[in-house]
Design a protein around this nucleic acid. Structure first.
Lengths: 259, 259
DNA sequence: CGGGCGTTTGAATCAAATCAATTGGAGTGG
DNA sequence: CCACTCCAATTGATTTGATTCAAACGCCCG
């Protein structure tokens, strides 16, 4: 856990928009609208090739030439980065409405694998055609840019979690993010069916599989989550706010000092 | 340190382009050319507002409305993410030729502070004008997209380092990246003048300042780096390859098994 | 000179990794 | 149906590496 704050001159302080408790709901609605708009806008701008995904299918693979961007219309995809020495790490999880393939734009070759973890559907868009379409339609370009920017922001956020949170809170935050992704897409967010092993979760969070298992057990013991009868991959979140509070708590261990 | 690899079906294996030892040099040349091109291309496409930076100046701040993207023409900038609870974390370091401000595109408001750590110069470009220019010039749009994609790739890479490397290797990797950034801009890469405190480095790497200090001492003891007479922030890299090898080594502790 | 800050270094503590054993389910075949 | 294997998951005991707490040093600057 980090103790040290970056030095920051007090003179650059500025008003930060407060994050209201109901911002979450608005965000969910926004996300849904955005996804629908994107799908519609893209559909009549470029030739879309729909592609059915089965668990284990690769949407694209590291080393492949980059030709298409993809929109995930259904399902759930993990993005895996393989380093030169053969080690790999899950660097992103993608849900409905997310774009896939931005990593290939930089140098024309994909740097990651994108692997479906569930049946789903990807819309593949030829990048060149998309660029042309963007030149015609500023709104489409705006959407694309915002999607890329949002992806960065998310990466940044997950980086912060990984760096600053202790193991239990990291797992809690992982579940919270998952639930949020679900609710942002209009799905029920209190029931999560993990389609990943403990090892994969650990890989994603920078923990060992044993630590993930222990963390889940502790969260269950604290009654923050509940395992369903169906198995230990089916998790019920009784109280999302309590989960969020738990994460916050482990960031500020002694708030008694503040008051 | 991670032990577990993500499950990956063997069927999706694909040829990965090998990273040759001279790829580094090519990349440096490429980077320089790219930076020069970008500066030129942008200059006559949109109204550029040059802005002198002094250490501590904010290029932009979290909470501000997003209006401009910035190109860093000289100097060195840290990007700081402040979370709701007041904690902050350095999420990026920017050098000459890097873009600044992508994080604001997503929702029209900046989510980070970008603070100069050195005298320098930023070129500020009105985003709207830039979008218009992109619609006219596909090459400019390509440049912009590639820059955004490259930023993601870098974030991803630093995420992996933070997740997988032990403290010493993390610091070594930090220095290696810094040196690479310098050489990519045509500057001498064997002499690094850190303009960050140990606390800031630790914040960036997910370590405490003491651990950073110890790691640097150990690297110096191993003769992988050398402190200059001028002070403990001035670091000489005697052998960049040895540094890289050190990082690799801590990923694969027992290569004896392989042979 | 003395105070403040950044840095180094040591000793004790603690959280997560590692090592190891066991349990639980899903699938297979006798 | 049961015995069997295989793999995921859990749980415990131990070790390790980073943090924490603490002290001291070097340095710049008023």
């Amino acid at each position: 856990m980090l103790a040290t704050a970056a030095a920051r001159s007090p003179s650059v302080a500025v008003d930060r928009p407060p994050i209201s408790p109901r911002a979450r709901d608005d965000e969910a609605a926004q996300t849904m609208r955005r996804v629908a708009e994107t799908l519609a806008l893209v559909a009549d701008a470029v030739p879309v090739q729909r592609r059915l995904l089965r668990p284990g299918d690769a949407v694209y693979q590291a080393g492949q030439r980059f030709t298409h961007l993809h929109l995930l219309n259904a399902g759930f995809v993990k993005v895996v980065n393989l380093s030169a020495d053969g080690r790999d790490q899950i660097v992103g999880l993608k849900f409905r409405g997310d774009w896939l393939g931005f990593d290939g734009i930089a140098d024309g070759v994909h740097g990651c694998d994108a692997v479906a973890m569930d049946t789903g559907e990807a819309w593949s868009l030829p990048y060149d055609a998309l660029v042309d379409a963007c030149a015609q339609r500023p709104r489409l370009m705006g959407k694309l840019h915002r999607a890329m920017s949002r992806e960065s922001a998310r990466d940044r956020h997950s980086l912060m979690s990984v760096c600053t949170l202790p193991a239990d809170a990291r797992v809690a935050e992982f579940l919270r993010n998952w639930a949020q992704s679900l609710s942002g897409r209009g799905l029920r967010a209190d029931q999560i069916l993990l389609r990943m092993t403990r090892a994969e979760i650990g890989n994603y969070l920078g923990l060992t599989l044993e630590t993930v298992s222990r963390a889940l057990s502790r969260l269950a013991r604290e009654r923050l989550i509940e395992f369903s009868d169906k198995g230990r991959r089916d998790i019920h979140i009784r109280d999302a706010d309590a989960l969020a509070a738990f994460v916050q708590l482990s960031l500020a261990p002694d708030l008694s000092v503040l008051q």
